[in-house]
Design a binder for these strands. Structure first.
Lengths: 205, 205
DNA sequence: AGCATAAACGGACTTTACCCCGCTTAGTAT
DNA sequence: ATACTAAGCGGGGTAAAGTCCGTTTATGCT
């Protein structure tokens, strides 16, 4: 007989048990994080044991310790992305590009602040390019909005990278620990204002 | 007799042998990096062995693996800082603030590009605040220049953090290895232009 | 249903960062 | 010079990340 077109692009879907185990591991990881707070107290051995699986399985699924946190973050990011792509304006579509950009910054920083511990744990010394670079939500969205703004002659791709850095992970890196813990409430508003000011400066005609 | 004012602020200078060992370890680390390239191939055991010192000494001096790379980077940063603080304009003093800001971005990115591997290795999953935050060269300098620019009503401290993130962040976190090796020459110029465009947009009246 | 095969699994093994603590030594005060 | 003390040193010990490979199992095909 004839073999059906062997999908070279789609290298065969994940097996059902693999999917189950991945989900189970992520759920277990969340439990452990909730119970004993502190991402650095989550060890791969403990995770495997608590999930009732072998350590080999954990690494097969996530590749590396940081991989687990990347998966967790990606998971939470889906809901956020939904709001951006299909939620009510000004975050969702329908508002003017500049207003969406401002709203995006506020929402994104709040998200990152809420996930700062997990986000930090996605970084990994041995990976040359860390998390979020694969699914560059912020960069892509910002790039899209910049495209609608008709800025004269700028390198929009690079500008998107710069603005992403000024908003997303890198900003978090440069805010000191005390900024983040002491005045968690205040910092959110302050960053939101600063972001608004930044993009208004960048985008004015 | 009377004890001399016991300096509580200056917790007693480092002992001579400690200084000697610190320098020796840094020099040895540089040798090893040069020989076998790849920061991740440098192990603490190997470093201690090659330096003829105990492993404990290495950790006592640098605290952590990332600490070694932070020390190496800081070391190289001194020369760079010299240029910024006392070198010829427009990087050094004497030029208009905006020109200095532009020149600083270009120079800083070139520096980071040359040190990207070490810089990357200063990041450490378990440290909440990474390299360069202790001696925030970029942030401080940018803040100072912004102060001279008389921008109306902006949150200059936060703007400095944002710009620092936009300058240093991409290299650390977003630009992939291929971006950097393929077009190493091109990327430098492109980033420099983008930086110039960004700060001109931000700082125009 | 039975078979072939690639994927997934488990857990012992290796490597490496980092800790601990008894011993040594530089610096200082007398 | 001598003695005192805090800092420094060494290297064996621990814990956790990541690898390997023999065994098990899901899945598609006949």
């Amino acid at each position: 007989m004839e073999r059906p077109v062997l999908p070279l692009g789609a290298p065969r879907a994940e097996r059902a048990d693999a999917v189950r185990n991945r989900r189970h591991l992520l759920a277990t990881a969340r439990e452990m994080l909730a119970e004993q707070g502190g991402a650095d107290r989550l060890t791969m051995d403990a995770l495997a044991a608590r999930a009732g699986l072998g350590k080999g399985t954990v690494f097969r699924r996530f590749g590396t310790r940081a991989g687990i946190f990347q998966a967790l973050l990606e998971d939470d990011e889906r809901a956020f992305q939904e709001q951006v792509m299909a939620g009510p304006p000004p975050l969702g579509p329908g508002a003017a590009p500049l207003d969406r950009l401002i709203a995006y910054g506020r929402a994104r920083f709040a998200f990152m602040l809420g996930h700062r511990e997990i986000a930090r744990a996605t970084l990994d010394g041995s990976q040359s390019v860390p998390a979020g670079s694969e699914t560059p939500l912020s960069r892509t969205h910002i790039r899209m909005l910049l495209g609608q703004l008709r800025l004269g002659g700028a390198d929009l791709d690079m500008l998107a990278v710069q603005l992403t850095a000024a908003l997303d992970g890198p900003l978090l890196l440069y805010l000191s620990a005390s900024d983040l813990t002491e005045a968690a409430a205040g910092i959110e508003e302050r960053v939101a204002r600063a972001w608004q000011d930044l993009v208004q400066r960048v985008c004015r005609p």
